[in-house]
Simulated assay, not measured.
Amino acid sequence: MVKPGRPGARKTSKGKAVGSGGQGRQALEGRGPTPAAADRSWHPAGKRKAAAERLAAAKTRGGRPDAPRARPQKKPDDHEMVTGRNSVLEALRAKIPATTLYVAARIEMDDRVKEILNIANKRGLPVLEVMRPELDRITPFDSVHQGLALKVPPYEYAHPMELLDKVISSGQKPLFVALDGITDPRNLGAIIRSTAAFGGQGVIVPQRRSVGLTASAWKTSAGAAARTPVAMAPNLTQTLKSLKERGVFVLGLDGGGDVSLPGLALAKQPVVIVVGSEGKGLSRLVAETCDAIVSIPISASTESLNAGIAASVTLYEISKLRAAK
């Protein structure tokens, strides 16, 4: 009779126990001689040996050593989109080097659209008809394209001193606007527009911590950016000092300025107007560089003026004083 065993228990047969097979003797003898450093894969010498072998194998087969391939980086599309009928028309009239004109399908034709298409055809500019959802997708989200968009390459900034030389050689009296800490492209666009309207010859923006000429600035300028050059200063303070050495007076705008704008004595001199940010105003170094800090009289109920408006008022006053005999 077979006795029931424990569940899961294994019955072993009786017999001679299995020996160690000499394992004990091997343990006493040790692991043998230590491999050379070059034969140990984890050792620096072993890694160098493996790398040399891969290099030799690659040379033998005429290929390149096995190495991780870098992923090709996609170049960012740094083109800008100029949108809106007026802005696109002004850009084409000024012969801005555009690459593509996008036109919405079934666009409502008017004189501006007809002239845009006529200029584009004469220049051999590619014209693509797209559906409005596609035009919405490729244009800035905060823009109103009015069924038209113009793709233009990155803006080529002028050099401030070269701009000054060009103005002087043309016999004009320099009138520039420099931006100090302006980051809103709409302010830049408005200032460019005012500069063009009141006889200014250019706008200067610093290379760092400032807005550049983006599509939004193009839009706000209503095409004035096509006629008014924008120069980029590597260092705004040093550029202002260089302008001073060439006889240009630097006028900073600030609500607490000690010189009042109406009847400004320096208006008929070569000047550059420096506009600071609406929140922080002029930076310390720029303010110290200015020949005068000019304030615009405003109502006591108004705390300050927008940077674009302040520049416009100042440009208007200077142009009026220059025109007066």
Score class of each variant (00 low, 15 high):
F198M: 11
G171M: 10
G252K: 06
S260E: 15
R209T: 04
S169G: 05
D165R: 12
G212R: 12
F249M: 14
L163K: 06
E278R: 05
A231C: 08
L179K: 00
S242W: 06
P229T: 02
F249V: 12
R227Y: 15
V167A: 01
L261N: 02
P262R: 06
L261A: 10
V230M: 07
S221K: 02
V167G: 01
A224S: 15
Q172N: 14
V259H: 15
D180L: 06
R246N: 11
G202T: 02
G257T: 07
L188Q: 06
V272G: 01
G276A: 04
V211R: 07
T195Q: 10
A178N: 10
V248Y: 01
A226R: 12
S170P: 00
G255V: 13
Q207H: 13
T239R: 04
W218S: 09
G202N: 10
A196N: 13
D254N: 14
S169D: 13
L253C: 09
K219L: 10
P160N: 08
K268V: 03
G171C: 08
G199R: 01
K244I: 04
L164V: 05
L240I: 13
W218P: 07
L236Y: 10
G255W: 02
A196H: 12
G189T: 02
K173I: 12
D165Q: 13
V250D: 01
L213N: 02
I204C: 06
L163Y: 09
K219M: 14
L188G: 08
V211H: 08
P160L: 03
P160Y: 11
V250F: 00
L236P: 10
T228E: 10
P185T: 05
V248S: 07
